[in-house]
């Protein structure tokens, strides 16, 4: 009899197949729906607090010195440039050796799209993450003579000037990004907030 039933299977496939397909599709849909909480749990848990501005006390920062603050989990270099440093940044020979001297690539807020790449010329503020592969560049101060100040990346030798602009002929493609920042008082710098009337979404910067 089983044999007989097996032959009926081949003679009337229509309805069973249809019912089977609908049921199978229903099961598959349910299984997919089950995946929702799994996928949800993998969503990056952006901590809202990381986006709050960070106040940095710069009262102890001497000219020619650099300090590192933490903003959104990234190192931020705050450099107090000497008048010589500033003069150097406008040196034609240096500018000729830069990949993007005018900061045309979006790596900074509009109020830092200038020759010193910052809100006030005295303070340079950069996210200290090399645009090549993400190492933290090392600051080298100007020590007079030919030793001009710069940033060297320890990983693949990329070089940046004291405005965070990348030199030609190194692997890094872009200038160091500038975070939104504002000088709230002569001794206090606020990272993550733009000056009044300005705004900058840091996540909009160009990255490879």
């Amino acid at each position: 009899m089983t044999d007989h039933s097996d032959t009926t299977e081949s003679t009337e496939p229509g309805r069973r197949d249809f019912l089977g397909m609908v049921t199978t599709a229903g099961v598959a849909a349910g299984a997919c729906a089950c995946a929702v909480p799994f996928v949800q749990s993998l969503a990056p848990q952006d901590s809202a607090s990381a986006h709050l501005p960070v106040d940095v006390d710069i009262s102890k920062l001497a000219p020619g010195q650099q300090m590192t603050a933490v903003w959104q989990g990234k190192p931020v270099f705050i450099l107090r440039r000497t008048p010589e440093d500033l003069k150097q940044l406008q040196d034609a020979a240096l500018v000729a050796d830069l990949r993007d001297p005018d900061s045309s690539v979006l790596q900074q807020p509009s109020y830092a799209k200038n020759w010193h790449r910052s809100f006030v010329p005295e303070y340079g503020v950069y996210v200290g993450v090399c645009t090549h592969l993400g190492c933290v560049p090392v600051y080298e101060a100007t020590t007079g003579g030919d030793n001009k100040g710069r940033y060297n990346c320890p990983c693949h030798g990329s070089k940046f000037d004291l405005a965070g602009r990348v030199r030609k002929g190194v692997p890094a493609p872009y200038n160091l990004p500038v975070p939104p920042h504002v000088l709230v008082s002569p001794t206090q710098l606020r990272l993550g907030e733009s000056p009044k009337g300005e705004s900058f979404d840091f996540s909009s910067i160009v990255q490879i």
Partner: peptide, 12 residues
């Protein structure tokens, strides 16, 4: 509480 979908995973 805080993990998105976490309560459902733990309940399962």
């Amino acid at each position: 509480r805080q993990l998105s979908g976490g309560w459902l995973l733990r309940a399962m």
